[in-house]
Design a protein around this nucleic acid. Structure first.
Length: 877
RNA sequence: GGGCGGAUAGUUCAGCGGUAGAACGCUUGCCUUACACGCAAGAAGUCACAGGUUCGAAUCCUGUUUCGCCCACCA
């Protein structure tokens, strides 16, 4: 019988099979259990319209790592998955689909039909991202999968809205909001992306009256809005414009007279010191307009085109078309004084990238002042902790300067606002269910608000709405609050902050203890991934090419605790792939040599065994601590270093001889190998779940059905053996020296630096190296004496005497040069350490261990230097 | 205009008070019966700059330069 494993790891043949094994085992599922401590992670909701990007791969990878780690540590791990209806984002996608297939817009088919279409779309495409997520190997509790439009979830949303309304936090306000002409809806401030663009500052003369040459010059970046001007303003303290007080000016193009008003808002330094006031199309102007009770004509329709309030020749033009026409016209009339270049930020809707227009409009708002207070406090008190800590500053800055939240969207896909209007008595009321009559006058003539809620209103309830809230469920009691939220820092405002105040409001508790902010993933040059640059990496393609584990390992390896952005590309992914393959092959070697193993605890440990087990213990501790502290990369690095360098390069290589020797030695080595492999698989499982499971399933003496729920190793089970460790250091340097062709020369001269009394095992190890060098040396034409004294226990150098003939093959001049550089280097190092040790402060205040170490090092350097001198003397003779 | 982060080997990054580290790439050998997605040996760094604190600074402080983010109603 032999172990059947391919020469290299083939993820495609493993991943789906293993995932099904886990699903069928039901190990992802969690139920409340008072005897076990829960560990809860709430998944950041992917959008129904979404396709998986590398950001998902990163934060779901970390979430899965944390969940698998805690599950193995014996916690009742529950990871809540779900999907967001994603209001406007989805509406845009379906709207486009409708247009492409039937040439219609949503307005052509109406709310009912459109809504039906979105549901159909969701049924058809909603699973795409979920299936992609599964390819990542995520171990979330699919039985609990929640969609933010599920019936239960709708109940929660209505409850929350009614609660806020009844508390007086929700109000209808007439304000200048951000309007997206493409989506034809209001959006909130944070949904506007500002892009600096090279614009102009137009200086325009408003004459005192029709025909007059004289007038005031205003400066504006948006001349088209002058059609909605109802005043011009100057600062009351501005001496230049004292004479304007009480006058009116003539508004060119629109042909009407508007007053000159005084307001502190006007900046004396900027532009001409005179500002045109367009109350319906600029938030500041609106405030000025309110103070001075100015008329506020709205000149733009929902589609972003000028409406009937403007002269006929402008009606139906878009704002930008109107701008051009107005500027032309002003120029013709000689009213355009000058045009300056001016850089300013232009707002765009983050979903559809359309330029947003400020618009006076009636919308529903949520008062934030009260809600924000406790939400700030819990972060101040470290009840909720950001990782890395610096993000809490971003959180505070936003929360402390927060504006009321514009909740309503003129969208047909989402939670319809549960506000009702009575046609008979004008009563406005909320209702938790479908009301049949007005509670005040009993009229049946009532209608529901047409608008929907901002999608983030429902996501804000995620940490408890998924657990059955507003019902008082066992789940809610057991799982809330959660432990950690893992997400990109780009949604701190959208989601993290809103979950915090929502949980505090409805649950009286924080939603999670830690908010771990991942970096953003960029391309190899550090650029943002974008469609236009065509530099986006599709995780599905990465999985096809490198395998899920390789991708996950790469991402974890790069995701440092500082939350730096991550540069991802072929090079690093290849490294991850190589590591996984190395694991596969080390396991293949181990398993091939384990077939006749007697199970049991290894006995009669030799220094090499003690050494690898010491290292293993250290690694287990380092990894456990790192994962507990959410320092993922540190953990990944610890495993990588131990596994590749210590385990593969040294232990496996050195294990070949005792295995060949057979007998007790062999059994012992097999048992140590087994112990190491088993432990490595376990601590690597949270990072690379598929390979580790696949290999673990092949272990001859495993207990249990899956590595997923195997016990996490405990470092105290591995004793740290200092003597073995220092012996190993010596052996390693001896072997390295022997391996080196130049070292052969030193051996020949009898001045090798690694003379020591070695135990039998060490000498054997060295002999093995000797054989290899012999072979290589023969290839290079060296001669040897054949009969060597055997079993020498003392000096390696004596043992290597047969290299005598090497001398003639060495380029003496070249070698002398090398020795000279080497000597200089050693000398410099020596001086450095001498200086350090000569430093009184160092001896007094440095840790004694450090001083000792340096003393030892100095001795070593001294003897090395001496050897070099001796060697160069011999050579030059 | 405010705030945040980075600047360490050719490249990507770790280290964050005690003698400069890893991976990739590069050079030189090797298909050594787990792995060429591999093995061994090697070259490679004024730790951006200038001051300061300290016995000692890549590491702490203060400036400067530079790259990148985020926030902000100066028309």
């Amino acid at each position: 019988m032999s172990v059947e494993m391919d020469k290299s790891y083939n993820p495609a043949s493993v991943e789906d099979r293993i995932y099904n094994l886990w699903i069928n085992g039901g190990w992802f599922h969690s139920e409340p259990d008072d005897n076990k401590e829960p560990f809860v992670v709430m998944m950041p909701l992917p959008n129904v319209t979404g396709i998986l990007h590398t950001g998902h791969a990163l934060n779901n990878g970390i979430q899965d790592l944390v969940i698998r780690f805690q599950r193995m540590r014996g916690k009742n791990a529950m990871w809540m998955p779900g999907e967001d209806h994603a209001g406007i984002a989805t509406q845009i996608v379906v709207d486009r689909d409708l247009y492409e297939k039937e040439g219609k817009s949503r307005f052509d088919i109406g709310r009912e039909a459109f809504s039906k279409r979105v549901w159909e779309w969701k049924e058809k495409h909603g699973d795409i991202i979920i299936n992609q997520l599964k390819k990542l190997g995520v171990s979330c509790d699919w039985d609990r999968f929640t969609f933010t439009m599920d019936e239960n979830y709708q109940v929660a949303v209505r409850e929350a809205f009614c609660h806020y309304f009844e508390k007086g936090y929700i109000y209808k306000g007439n304000r200048v909001i951000n309007w997206c002409p493409y989506c034809q809806t209001a959006i909130s401030d944070i949904e506007v992306e500002h892009e600096d663009s090279a614009g102009h500052l137009w200086h325009i003369k408003y004459p005192f009256k029709d025909g007059s040459d004289d007038g005031v010059v205003i400066a504006t970046t948006r001349p088209e809005t002058m059609l909605g001007d109802t005043a011009v303003a100057v600062n009351p303290s501005d001496e230049r414009y004292k004479h304007l007080k009480g006058k009116t000016v003539f508004l060119p193009v629109a042909c009407k007279e508007i007053p000159v008003i005084e307001d502190d808002y006007v900046d004396l330094e900027f532009g001409t010191g005179v500002v045109k006031i367009t109350p319906a199309h600029d938030p500041n102007d609106f405030e000025v307009g309110t103070r001075h009770e100015l008329p506020m004509p709205i000149i733009m329709g929902p589609d972003g085109k000028l409406n009937k309030k403007v002269p006929e020749r402008y009606q139906g033009l878009t704002m930008l078309e109107a701008r051009k026409k107005i500027v032309d016209e002003l120029e013709e009339k000689g009213l355009l004084v000058k045009i300056e270049d001016h850089k300013h930020a232009v707002g765009h809707h983050d979903k559809c990238k359309t330029r947003v227009e400020p618009l006076l409009s009636k919308q529903w708002f949520m008062r934030m002042d009260e809600l924000v207070k406790p939400a700030i406090q819990v972060v101040k008190d470290k009840k909720v902790q950001f990782i890395p800590e610096r993000w809490s500053k971003v959180y505070f800055d936003w929360m402390e300067n927060i504006q009321d939240w514009c909740l309503s969207r003129q969208s047909w896909w989402g939670h319809r606002i549960p506000i009702y209007y009575c046609d008979d008595c004008d009563e406005i009321f909320v209702s938790r269910d479908e009301p049949s009559a007005c509670p005040k006058c009993g009229s049946k003539s009532i209608r529901q608000e047409e608008d929907s809620l901002d999608t983030w209103f429902s996501s804000a309830l995620w940490p408890f709405a998924t657990l059955g809230w507003p019902e008082k469920t066992k789940d809610l009691e057991y799982y809330h609050p959660g432990n950690v939220l893992i997400t990109g820092y780009d949604i701190i405002f959208y989601w993290v902050a809103r979950m915090i105040f929502s949980s505090l409001e409805f649950m009286g508790d924080i939603p999670f203890k830690y908010a771990y902010m991942t970096g953003l993933i960029r391309d190899e040059q550090g650029r943002k991934m974008s469609k236009s640059l065509k530099n986006a990496i599709n995780p599905m393609e990465v999985i096809d090419k490198f395998g899920t584990d390789a991708m996950r390992f790469t991402l974890m390896f790069l995701s440092t605790q500082g939350g730096q952005d991550i540069k991802l590309g072929e090079t690093v992914l290849t490294e991850g792939r190589n590591f996984i393959n190395k694991l596969w092959n080390a396991s293949r070697f181990t398993l091939m040599n384990l077939e006749d193993m007697k199970p049991g605890k290894p006995e009669n440990l030799q220094f090499i065994d003690k050494w690898i087990l010491s290292k293993l213990g250290e690694t287990v501790k380092a990894v456990t601590d790192a994962f507990e502290e959410y320092d993922i990369a540190k953990g990944a690095r610890a495993i990588y270093d131990f596994f590749w360098t210590d385990f593969c390069d040294w232990y496996i290589e050195l294990s070949k001889m005792p295995i060949m020797n057979g007998g007790e030695e062999k059994t012992r080595t097999q048992q140590v190998l087994y112990l190491c492999l088993d432990t490595i698989l376990k601590i690597l499982h949270p990072i690379a779940p598929y390979v580790t499971e696949e290999i673990w399933q092949k272990l001859p003496h495993k207990t249990g059905d899956t590595i997923m729920i195997a016990d996490w190793p405990n470092h105290v089970d591995f004793v740290f053996d200092e003597e073995a460790t220092s012996e190993m250091v010596k052996v390693q340097s001896a072997i390295r020296a022997i391996r080196n062709l130049k070292a052969k020369l030193r051996i020949h001269q009898g001045i090798i630096g690694c003379k020591f009394n070695a135990p039998k095992e060490t000498v054997e190890l060295l002999n093995r190296e000797k054989q290899q060098i012999e072979k290589q040396a023969r290839v290079e034409g060296f001669e040897f004496a054949e009969n060597q004294p055997d079993g020498s226990v003392t000096a390696v150098s004596t043992d290597m005497k047969f290299y005598l003939d090497v001398a003639g093959k060495i380029d003496i001049a070249e070698e002398l040069k090398r020795i000279e550089t080497s000597k200089n280097k050693t000398e410099a190092e020596l001086q450095k350490i001498e200086k350090l040790l000569g430093n009184e402060g160092f001896v007094k205040s440095a840790p004694p261990a450090v001083v000792e170490k340096n003393k030892v090092k100095m001795e070593e350097l001294k003897s090395e230097l001496e050897n070099l001198r001796e060697l160069s003397d011999t050579l030059s003779n």
